[in-house]
Simulated scan of single mutants.
Amino acid sequence: PKGVVVSHRSIIDYIEWILNEDKICPKPDDIIGNQSPFYFDNSVLDIYLCFFKGIKLVIIPEEKFLFPKDLLQYLYTKHINYIFWVPSLLNNIAKNKILDSSKPKFQKILFAGENMPTKTLNYWMENYPGTTFANLYGPTEITVDCTFYIIDKTFKENESLPIGTSCRNTQVMIFDESNQLITKSNQIGEICVRGSCLSLGYYNDLEKTNSVFIQNPLHQKYEDRVYKTGDLGYYTADRHIILTGRKDQQIKHNGYRIELGEIELALGDFDAIEGVCVVYDEQNSIIRLFYESKKEISKAEIFNHLKDKLPKYMLPQEYIWLETLPLNPNSKIDRKALKTFKKESK
């Protein structure tokens, strides 16, 4: 695994940004429930907010996350009301409707690390109408998060959730393939970041560091580092950023350029599907859709749902049902495992 060297300055700057955002800053009597392992960058928020604010941090036992009902009871017993989790864990609770029977007293729910399904968010917001929800975004290389969006409206289940606007002391820009700055709405490009949030690079790997921490393409007047995230996105009309996927999830299939994330989004309002991941088999030129649901759904039913939303060239060739999508150690959907999945589709 890559080692990212993050400076004390960047961590202090990150935490001071949160402390100055009233809507997501914890109060003196809040109790944070830590989900992220300490090797995962999301834990930086939990640990240093605890120190900076002098508030209580509960390190939730890892096994609690295997049993959502027990987890919620544990949160309630410990009076945890502030969490910063990955969406997959929030989805595990939502798909089983566990909040209907057990409901901790959350005041602030932050999430980051992967796309939050709008269907999952709507379930949580229905159960916590007075709670603050925020979508945070950022790779480890920019010290945890560089954009945020405080949820202030209801989204349709097939709508994308914005990652919002830049955090303090951070500039987020979008460049096209020619390194030209994108300013227009709805034009997809690579998300790039500059500011005091940037890490120092990769430990013992200058070649990799110099390939993604580059001189600002907008000028050559002085050293001005910009980090190329590898994530793709675009501006909405109100200048929020929508994340569409990663460059390595943008494929060329039968001559067409396809964003795999668009296929996943098109299934966001399919009620029976509780989780979805689309991968591309380069060797066999196959778009393969994995979905999680309580029972197997016919290929025809999924196809009929997608055919009016996507052009024919974007429709998956294989549909594979799993009772549970695999998660990696950081509790995100394990796309690498699904890329090498051997089960034959029916």
Results as ranks from 00 to 15, higher is better:
residue 10 S to N: 08
residue 10 S to A: 14
residue 10 S to E: 08
residue 14 Y to W: 15
residue 14 Y to E: 13
residue 14 Y to H: 15
residue 15 I to R: 06
residue 15 I to F: 07
residue 16 E to I: 12
residue 16 E to N: 14
residue 17 W to I: 12
residue 17 W to M: 13
residue 17 W to N: 13
residue 18 I to M: 05
residue 19 L to T: 06
residue 20 N to A: 08
residue 20 N to M: 07
residue 20 N to Y: 12
residue 21 E to H: 11
residue 21 E to N: 13
residue 21 E to Q: 10
residue 22 D to V: 14
residue 23 K to F: 11
residue 23 K to V: 10
residue 24 I to F: 02
residue 24 I to Y: 03
residue 24 I to V: 06
residue 26 P to K: 03
residue 27 K to N: 08
residue 27 K to A: 09
residue 27 K to Q: 12
residue 27 K to D: 12
residue 28 P to M: 03
residue 31 I to K: 04
residue 31 I to N: 05
residue 32 I to V: 07
residue 34 N to G: 11
residue 34 N to I: 12
residue 35 Q to H: 09
residue 35 Q to T: 07
residue 35 Q to L: 11
residue 36 S to W: 11
residue 36 S to T: 03
residue 37 P to Y: 05
residue 37 P to S: 12
residue 39 Y to M: 13
residue 40 F to Q: 10
residue 40 F to K: 10
residue 41 D to T: 11
residue 41 D to K: 14
residue 42 N to W: 12
residue 43 S to M: 09
residue 43 S to I: 13
residue 43 S to Q: 05
residue 44 V to F: 07
residue 45 L to F: 15
residue 45 L to C: 14
residue 45 L to D: 11
residue 45 L to I: 15
residue 47 I to S: 10
residue 47 I to K: 13
residue 47 I to R: 13
residue 48 Y to C: 01
residue 48 Y to Q: 08
residue 48 Y to S: 03
residue 48 Y to G: 00
residue 50 C to S: 11
residue 50 C to Y: 00
residue 50 C to H: 10
residue 52 F to Y: 12
residue 52 F to I: 00
residue 53 K to A: 00
residue 54 G to Y: 00
residue 54 G to A: 03
residue 56 K to G: 02
residue 57 L to K: 11
residue 57 L to M: 06
residue 59 I to W: 08
residue 60 I to D: 05
residue 61 P to S: 00
residue 63 E to N: 09
residue 63 E to A: 10
residue 63 E to P: 04
residue 63 E to L: 03
residue 64 K to H: 08
residue 64 K to D: 05
residue 65 F to G: 01
residue 66 L to T: 09
residue 67 F to Q: 12
residue 67 F to Y: 10
residue 67 F to S: 13
residue 68 P to T: 03
residue 69 K to Y: 11
residue 70 D to C: 08
residue 70 D to P: 07
residue 70 D to Y: 09
residue 71 L to A: 14
residue 71 L to Y: 15
residue 72 L to R: 07
residue 73 Q to P: 08
residue 73 Q to E: 13
residue 74 Y to R: 04
